[in-house]
Amino acid sequence: MSETHATTPPSAPVFPPGRYGRRRAPGRRRPWLVVAVAVLLVGVLGLVSARLYRQYGDPNYRAEVVTYTDITDRQVVVDFRVTVPPGGAAVCLVRARSRDGAEVGHDEVPVAAAPGQRHLEVRHRLATSARPLLGEVTRCRPAA
């Protein structure tokens, strides 16, 4: 009687010949490719974050709507408070929206603080194309 083994040694898997297709030899490792992809990914993320930072503003430039009044079919008056670095200047985007959420007017409002001043109170009359429901300040960014 001959001896048979129920298990195969863990050194190499044994597949029945002719099944599962042709086996390939392990490929060469390319560490430079991994490094190149990582560098490219970091570069793209850096560009995207810089663009988002420019688009949505610097945290040193903040705006807060105090009130919006004098709403008619053609205008809204927006009172807002702006915080800038001492003596700094900013450009704030003020917009009006109608009852259905559509933008019915917008304007870029330049504001400048006196030397040493950080907080400004601003009143802006915004012309609209239809009756607005509200006035808002979407962002402030450093003046160019």
Rank of each mutant, 00 (worst) to 15 (best):
V35I: 02
V35E: 02
V35M: 01
A36G: 00
A36Q: 02
V37M: 03
V37I: 01
V37Q: 01
V37E: 00
A38M: 08
A38V: 07
A38F: 04
A38H: 08
A38S: 09
A38L: 14
A38D: 07
V39M: 08
V39H: 07
V39Q: 08
L40N: 06
L40G: 09
L40F: 10
L40M: 09
L40I: 06
L41V: 15
L41M: 12
L41K: 03
L41Q: 10
V42S: 09
V42H: 04
V42C: 04
V42A: 10
V42D: 02
V42W: 04
V44Y: 02
V44R: 02
V44I: 10
V44M: 03
V44F: 01
V44T: 06
L45V: 10
G46C: 05
G46H: 07
L47V: 12
L47A: 15
L47H: 15
L47E: 12
V48R: 14
V48E: 09
S49L: 15
S49C: 09
A50P: 03
A50T: 08
R51K: 13
R51D: 14
R51H: 15
L52A: 15
L52T: 14
L52E: 11
L52G: 11
Y53W: 13
Y53L: 10
R54A: 13
R54K: 13
R54I: 01
Q55F: 07
Q55W: 09
Q55R: 12
Y56G: 07
Y56I: 08
Y56C: 03
G57V: 00
G57E: 00
D58F: 01
D58H: 08
D58A: 04
D58N: 13
D58P: 08
D58M: 02
D58T: 05
D58W: 02
P59I: 01
N60W: 10
N60L: 13
N60I: 08
Y61F: 10
Y61N: 04
Y61H: 04
Y61D: 01
A63T: 01
A63I: 05
E64Y: 14
E64I: 09
E64P: 07
E64N: 15
V65T: 08
V65F: 03
V65R: 03
V65K: 06
V65I: 07
V66D: 10
V66M: 12
T67C: 11
T67I: 11
T67N: 15
T67K: 15
Y68M: 06
Y68L: 04
T69Q: 13
T69M: 14
T69E: 11
T69S: 14
D70I: 06
D70L: 11
I71F: 00
I71K: 02
T72A: 05
D73H: 09
D73N: 12
D73A: 12
D73W: 12
R74H: 12
R74T: 14
R74V: 11
Q75C: 06
Q75K: 09
Q75G: 03
Q75S: 12
Q75M: 08
V76W: 00
V76P: 02
V76Y: 03
V76T: 04
V77D: 02
V78Y: 05
V78S: 04
V78H: 06
V78Q: 05
D79L: 13
D79W: 12
D79A: 14
F80L: 07
F80H: 05
F80R: 06
F80P: 02
F80V: 04
